Amino acid sequence: LEVQANDKPAAPEPEEKPAEGAGDDDTAGPADPPRLGASITFAPGVGGAGPRDYSPAEPAEEDLDETDEGHFVPPEPPPLPEADTTAKFAWLAVIGGPVLMLVAVVLRWDMTWWLTTLCVGGFLGGFATLVARMSDGDDEEDPDPGRGAVV
């Protein structure tokens, strides 16, 4: 490599100085680049719009078609089966036992043995009744479970 004496590095260009009367404060003018951290906001809803502020455009009325074949409308679900008397009393015991104990504590009743037995025994008895009456799911067993999805 040969270095010639005429190869001098380019001198840096002088920086432009603000015009007089522009002010010497630290605020950035419209021509200045943004300062570091200027885009950070610490309060929600303050500052520019973010990705959660996006809302899709509403379709025009002529685009909406009442007979759209691709729109799925699920059928009405069947009504719930009527609960029998045993299930109703079991739920009453499961919910009523703790509620009765809470009322006794709030009203500062004496926690006698019969009140405690009624609350705890009612809860445990109702819970055991509901668990014992649960269906295990074998009632409607499919004879060929390996069929896969049926479309």
Rank of each mutant, 00 (worst) to 15 (best):
Arg147His: 15
Glu62Ile: 14
Ala11Phe: 12
Thr86Lys: 04
Arg35Asp: 10
Glu2Trp: 00
Pro77Ser: 02
Asn6Ile: 10
Phe123Cys: 11
Ala38Phe: 07
Glu15Val: 08
Asp136Phe: 06
Gln4Thr: 09
Val131Ala: 01
Pro33Cys: 08
Ile40Cys: 13
Phe127Asp: 05
Thr41Ile: 12
Ala132Ile: 15
Thr116Asn: 02
Ala60Tyr: 06
Thr41Asp: 10
Ala43Asn: 12
Pro81Thr: 03
Val105Gln: 13
Thr117Gln: 02
Trp91Ala: 01
Val99Gln: 01
Phe72Asn: 03
Glu13Ser: 13
Trp91Leu: 06
Gly125Ser: 05
Ser39Asp: 15
Glu58Leu: 15
Ala93Thr: 05
Leu115Asp: 07
Val103Gly: 04
Thr129Val: 00
Phe127Gln: 03
Arg133Ile: 11
Val120Ala: 08
Pro14Asn: 09
Val103His: 00
Val99Pro: 04
Ala38Trp: 05
Leu64Cys: 08
Gly148Pro: 04
Gly148Asp: 02
Leu92Cys: 00
Glu66Ile: 13
Asp139Pro: 10
Ala11His: 11
Gly21Met: 00
Asp138Asn: 11
Lys17Phe: 06
Asp32Trp: 12
Pro56Asp: 06
Ala11Pro: 13
Pro81Trp: 04
Lys17Ser: 07
Pro51Ser: 13
Leu1Glu: 13
Pro98Glu: 03
Asp136Trp: 02
Pro145Ile: 10
Pro74Ile: 04
Met111Asp: 06
Pro145Gln: 03
Asp144Ala: 09
Leu80Phe: 15
Thr116Lys: 01
Gly96Ser: 03
